[in-house]
């Protein structure tokens, strides 16, 4: 057997090993229930609860933003983010937070928002208000 073949086989074995080990990097999204149970860093995907308080007062603390998130099971929890409130947050449809539960609150270290992009709307812009309203 050639040396390069041996090395190639070693690499293939390594690749399989990495794929198996990196399985732990791949997650489905957690729920608040699971997060409470594991007490580990998890990702929770959910929707913003629009009728509950969203708090950000940059003059009080520019690094504190809290809001309520409803996970896929319908559970609502307060999320505390240690960062500034992102732009267009209210518009987000779906939010993914990374963090862990602490006393019934989810302390997030990272957050990803999925926003309907305003530039992808199928809209015709009309010159003046008198002629027509913006149509969809």
């Amino acid at each position: 057997m050639k040396k390069s073949h041996i090395i190639a086989i070693v690499m293939i074995v390594a690749a399989i090993g990495i794929f198996i080990s990196s399985g732990s990097d791949m997650t489905t999204f957690s729920t608040f229930k699971e997060a409470t149970a594991t007490q580990k860093v998890v990702k929770v995907s959910g929707d913003l609860v629009k009728n509950k308080e969203m708090y950000y007062d940059e003059q009080e603390n520019p690094n504190l933003f809290t809001f309520y998130l409803k996970d896929s099971e319908g559970q609502e929890r307060k999320v505390i983010l240690n960062n500034a409130k992102p732009q267009d947050f209210e518009k987000s449809e779906n939010i993914v937070v990374t963090g862990k539960m602490q006393n019934d609150e989810f302390v997030a270290t990272d957050m990803l928002m999925k926003c309907p992009s305003k530039y992808k709307d199928e809209e015709i812009y009309v010159k003046s208000k008198e002629t027509a309203s913006i149509m969809n």
Binding site: Y119, E122, E123, I124, Y125, V126, K127, S128, T131, A132, M135, N136
Partner: peptide
């Protein structure tokens, strides 16, 4: 043409070209 790719009531007006404006670059 815009009017061939989407449907909107504005295309009922013969002079719709004078009424529309560009969305502009992001």
């Amino acid at each position: 043409l815009l009017r061939d790719t989407m449907e909107a009531p504005i295309f009922a007006q013969a002079d719709y070209v004078t009424l529309i404006k560009g969305r502009g670059l992001n």
